[in-house]
Amino acid sequence: MARDGTRLTGVPAEPRWRQPALAALRGASALALPLLILAAWQWAGGERGVLLGGALPTPLRVWEAWQAWAFGPVGMGLNAYSGTWLGAVLFSAGRVAQGFLLAVALAVPLGILIGWSRGAAALVDPTIQMLRPIPITAWLPFSIAIFGIRDFGAIFLIALGVFYPVVVNATQGAREVERNWIRAALMLGSGRMKILLHVVLPAALPAIFTGMRIGLGVGWTAVIVSEMVAVKSGLGYVLWDAYYVGRMDVVLADMATIGVLGLLTDRAILLLAGRLLRWRALAAHGGGR
């Protein structure tokens, strides 16, 4: 053991026995308001199960519609949506995944380069900053004209939406790398590429994850918008289609589905960040210093 006040890992805070109890309490208080709203909504719907002259079905009606949509028999029948839920989810999630990965693969190296090199910044950054204020929804006609009513039109829009927050955050992350980390790598004989890969990229990773979380939200927006207009499948298509035929129960079940998927994918990124950025969590707990 070293002589000078050694300590290994510090995650003290709450006594252990209190942690589950506190978590349960926090969970209960988080659910209280949504449950209250749902109960009031259900009650207001009364016997007929609809509000506002039939425009707004009650939560139980929505729940039943979702069950039929998810688990009903596919094919002939009065309910065109029966059994198609998983397919719609896979179409939309698949597009988001493709667009997201494409954007991250482009935006991370580009952002690191812009943050690292003044030359790259002068060359590329102004173009990005000029294009960025154009909302992705405004790109929709362009996307249809270029890529047609095909999958790639949606993927292009999603990728564009994910690209901006990731590139901007990666740039910022690469700019804020501690100077002495770079100097340390230099004096240890590392070349430029090695420093980018082994110092700048890991140092920028927390910022990149911030960008990816924002980007993912934009990606879900983009997939719904493009499926409503340009592509004939997925949750966005069902959303618009169900509205046209007056199936508001399906519309609401669809909205809820999108919300849950957005939440789950965000959690997945957080989980990955927790794994990769363990060093940062430890530093935040004030170990040492």
Partner: peptide
């Protein structure tokens, strides 16, 4: 430098003196 046994620790888990080692 007296760091055997700390090979797997992260810098944030070390004291200032140990980081200098």
């Amino acid at each position: 430098v007296g760091l055997q046994g700390f090979e797997d620790a992260l810098p944030s888990q070390l004291s200032g003196g140990m980081r200098q080692r």
